[in-house]
Design a protein around this nucleic acid. Structure first.
Lengths: 189, 189
DNA sequence: GAAAATTTGGGACATTTGTCCCGTATCTGC
DNA sequence: GCAGATACGGGACAAATGTCCCAAATTTTC
């Protein structure tokens, strides 16, 4: 549900202790509901979450939103854009208040080339995201909503997270009205 | 629609001409409808398509299939499993007859570490796939099927590809019955 | 603390989609 | 050529979903 990849925190701590330039990696804080990355806009930085939770979503032209993932400790933001040298493909905003490493895009690319552990960790992170994204797309299409919702609620309960209905429906890709109906039906059972 | 990444063919040609061991990289042919990778099964190899088209899909436990992508020239198969060291997350089978490079998993991982151009190309390929997969999931959830279908048909026409209805419906994540209805409606317009 | 904005909940209706089912056409292997 | 598998097409019904709407509760902002 909320992705984590704490290995990046270890790697970055090491990179910093070994004397990475201050201009290239700095620490930054965001209050809730602030945009860290914007869709269709060029990015200057890659972020790594130290603490807090971020929400990565796509805003479609018809005004709807699809939540790709919730990002926790150690997750990277903006790496796709940096690697492909393209404009932002998604929005990222803080759900809770957020403490992040802010890394210059050029420095990120340099780290990728020069730091084998960092490179390996990015490869693994992207492979994992790809697998998760693909499996989620498949489940979302191929199973009933009530099944997907019940799975989601279980996880939320386990992780003791509370989401707004809007985020819930955005994650499931349905309207709030449908979500309410499903919840009413599930509650009755 | 059909992904391509011809740079891998150049890189592999170079790797081979510089004397890669025969056991590690070989060329193999498949007739249509043969499985190259199986879900939940451990993989021994990574493949790169030299020519032909492959179909990558997830088979869910309820018997349905979701087509992730169609893979053409230069596309890699099995890299996620190799990088994560996990069992297959999807099936891949040949749609047309297929000519591929078969690469030992360990050799693939070694190339990733030692060949900077190869590493960079894999990073870009995964970033692109991630972006595509995410955007497709979003569109699939947030737009009407008739819109998604019309977009898909345009592309198929442009690329002059003919799919079976089953593949079309598998790609859209809907039943064949729904597809037929949509096609009938679209034809009437 | 009051006004504004957001979140929540749900009724009513039309539309979309899946499921089940049956029949025909087409391809494939022997 | 023929049997069996696979692809294709669509009727009928039930279930799921979106859209539009209104109203209460809650949060945010000044």
């Amino acid at each position: 549900m909320i992705r984590k990849s704490p290995i990046f925190l270890q790697i970055l701590d090491k990179v910093i202790s070994e004397g990475a330039p201050r201009e290239s990696i700095s620490i930054q804080e965001f209050p809730p509901k602030k945009r860290l990355l914007e869709q269709d806009r060029n990015t200057r930085n890659v972020f790594v979450i130290r603490s807090g939770i971020g929400k990565c979503f796509i805003a479609e032209e018809n005004g709807k939103e699809y939540i790709l993932e919730f990002l926790g400790e150690g997750e990277i933001l903006g790496e796709i854009e940096a690697i492909r040298r393209t404009a932002g493909m998604a929005m990222v905003e803080s759900l809770t208040s957020l403490c992040v490493f802010k890394i210059e895009k050029t420095y990120f690319l340099q780290l990728l080339k020069t730091d084998a552990a960092f490179n390996q960790a990015v490869l693994e992170l992207m492979a994992t995201r790809l697998a998760n994204t693909a499996m989620r797309a498949s489940r979302q299409q191929l199973y009933t909503l009530s099944y997907n919702l019940s799975q989601l609620l279980k996880i939320l309960q386990q992780e003791k997270i509370v989401f707004t209905k809007k985020d819930l429906s955005g994650y499931l890709g349905i309207s709030i009205r449908s979500l309410n109906r499903l919840l009413a039906a599930a509650g009755g059972v």
